[in-house]
Write a protein that binds this DNA or RNA. Structure first.
Lengths: 243, 243
DNA sequence: ACGAGTATACTTGTATACAAGTATTATAAA
DNA sequence: TTTATAATACTTGTATACAAGTATACTCGT
């Protein structure tokens, strides 16, 4: 598999990844970004040719993406589902569902170590903002939520997160890249929300947590649509560079 | 792939399934039943030899089972996680979580068709009980819950269900096979609970629904442990037949 | 011109071959 | 006996080959 210059997915996150994982990550981001449009029919052979790999890693990728609800495997070809507004709302439904569940569990356990870890992550986010590193910021943002979820040690909640995570990662990645270019002023509020989240956990304050969660969602969800179109234009731009 | 006489998974559910799906289903049930014990390290080559298939369908199966949290893919070999009491409780946590979410949505939509469909399924369950067909009963039981979940048309809730379903199916299958042999008197109550669930949906009665859901769980969950040991003995018996 | 039937170019699913890396075991030296 | 090193027998990941089935398109007959 040659290293494409026009990969959307951060190359440095794929250093020790297998070919199958590379294809999966890249294909996922192309679908989420809209570069590959909903309704497109993907053929294993064509994808294999396009990525200059065999069908094995392609099959692996398609199976993974199907489990993430991004494509639908049919008799002849894989149909791209993609992310409409409806799907994005549904993703946030599920995030709200599991993070609320997690918070209820947090009320019952020791959270000192957790809050220290979360504070560290917020510091990392600040540095990422300072150096305008969208990818690093996204990584820390995802890590923030994953750290909270992992802390309650619930394997089936973690299973849900594992299925949701890659799509969330893609959404946040694209969203943050756009913000660094066009809405840099958003970041103080995003940071503040994360700090509020930590405070809510420390105070074991359910209302505060729900509020910060909603603010967080409004922050990302409310503006996803706009960022969406911009991101699509960006993706198209990349595409055209290679025509 | 030869057809094993000692398959745990219902053969008639696999008629039009691929080899990969057959291996997945059988392997899953062997893990859930405890035939393959927690901590066992599975090798692709050995499994391929055991099932008399190539590594391709085996790899597919292992990847699927890993996404269902039944095994953990590591550098050398796949480690069986299996289902401890903790995992079973966690599965029911998630079921409670999503079915509660679904019920909230049901309050807002037209549920006439749904309740008719559910009533039909309950009738099917009665027939299955009458003819002591544990597998058919399990199928209808799973279908009952899937029908409810599908009715709200929420692709990411459905995604969670799709990940949970195979394990639930296995649990219910093993549990029901045991009941038909040892606890036949349980079925009137199980049926009644399902009818109560329908009533709750019709009446849009949240409390009633939660109650029937809890009863349902107590029914299955509370007795899973006992049935568990019996099932393991059954599985061992099957194993010994083939020594 | 139009329909039936066949040929062809696809599709997926499975088997096999190969490469690269890892753990284990055996052997040799101290 | 113990330790270090090398050979061997594993492991997974990827590529390729093959089989069976499906849709498309084309040709032939009417």
């Amino acid at each position: 598999m040659t290293e494409f210059k026009d990969f959307l997915y951060p190359q440095k996150w794929l250093i020790k990844a297998s070919t199958g994982e590379k294809v999966t990550s890249e294909l996922r981001l192309r679908i989420i970004s809209g570069w590959i449009e909903s309704g497109t029919i993907l053929s294993e052979n064509k994808l294999a040719a396009e990525f200059s790999v065999s069908r094995s890693p392609i099959r692996e990728a398609l199976k993974t993406l199907a489990s993430e609800n991004l494509i639908r495997l049919e008799r002849m070809g894989a149909v791209v589902i993609g992310l409409t507004d409806k799907e994005i709302e549904e993703i946030y439904d599920v995030r709200l569902l599991i993070e609320t569940f997690v918070f209820e569990r947090l009320l019952k356990i020791e959270i000192t170590e957790l809050t220290i870890e979360l504070s560290k992550i917020v510091e990392m986010m600040k540095v990422a903002i300072k150096y305008q590193d969208a990818d690093e910021f996204s990584y820390q943002d995802i890590l923030f939520h994953e750290t909270i979820i992992r802390s309650i040690d619930h394997s089936y909640i973690l299973m849900i997160w594992n299925n949701l995570k890659p799509v969330m990662e893609g959404l946040i990645l694209l969203s943050m890249r756009m913000r660094f270019k066009e809405k840099y002023e958003d970041f103080p509020r995003i940071l503040k929300n994360h700090e509020l989240y930590i405070t809510a956990i420390q105070a074991k304050d359910r209302k505060l947590m729900v509020q910060s969660l909603h603010d967080n969602f409004d922050d990302v969800q409310g503006k996803v649509e706009d960022l969406w179109k911009s991101q699509q234009m960006l993706a198209k731009g990349v595409e055209q560079q290679n025509d």
